[in-house]
Design a protein around this nucleic acid. Structure first.
Lengths: 134, 134
DNA sequence: CCTATCCCTGGAGTTAAGTCCAGGGTCAAG
DNA sequence: CTTGACCCTGGACTTAACTCCAGGGATAGG
């Protein structure tokens, strides 16, 4: 299949597929005489692999590492794969913690605000952001 | 005070202060004859306001809006401020949900992996990413 | 053959929030 | 008067992951 079909099967743009190729994530199975990229169903699986990893939060650079391990599965220990996954889990947990902290703080000061049509002269949100302490 | 003192009091770089000025978030109280920016304690409070808002997840653009409201507090309703805060809370909640989804999915497939030194030929993480379905 | 639709390459632009640099001016102390 | 610390401007660079563009070639259908 050509690049357009591959892209639409995976719901991404053609440019994205070419971008992944530039990043060495996805190589076409071949080229037509005219220079068109052609992809096999193997390439389709590979692109789906990439997209699934992306949806789990892996960056393209990390996906490259995953692919490197996958290509050489027989000679790579499971532990290498699991390490990548656990590092990513840690990343996610850190982001969750940071967002949770923000959420709690912002909820606290937002709930205290009347939100009415009266002037914001003593708005508790603005005051909280402007406070002397902390 | 000069820009260096202001920056170090707030734990940011000098360039950051100048960047905020370019973004119209923070104007120096004046200039010396030689062209040095000078800042009053009012500017110090303003910078702290900006940084506090940032720590709650507001972008600089949104902080600009907050400052616009703050400067004209008397004529702005509390509801305008609260709307910004609630929109940001919604943002944060969406990110939390997305990260939570990622965390759960990744935890699921990671827990299933042995993580041992045996070859990753049948590694459940790689298999999960490579699966036919979904 | 003509046309529409697909595809090619190389390179530039996007976003956010800085960060860094060159080349130069200012200021206070000794 | 010299030195060192500070500051100025304008502009380029960074990261991630695309996205878009110009200018052109390939291919299929009628």
């Amino acid at each position: 299949m050509q690049i357009g079909e591959l892209a639409s099967k995976c719901g991404v743009r053609i440019d994205t597929v070419r971008y992944y190729e530039k990043q060495k994530l996805l190589v076409p199975s071949g080229r037509t005489e005219g220079g068109y990229r052609i992809y096999s169903t193997v390439a389709l699986r590979e692109l789906r692999f990439i997209l699934r990893a992306k949806s789990l939060g892996f960056t393209l650079k990390e996906i490259q590492e995953l692919l490197t391990l996958k290509i050489d599965r027989e000679n790579q220990p499971c532990s290498s794969v699991k390490e990548l996954a656990e590092a990513k889990l840690k990343d996610i947990e850190e982001k969750l913690a940071e967002l949770g902290r923000m959420h709690q703080a912002l909820t606290g000061i937002t709930d205290a605000c009347c939100g009415g049509e009266e002037p914001a002269t003593a708005c508790s949100i603005l005051d909280a952001l402007d406070k002397e302490d902390s």
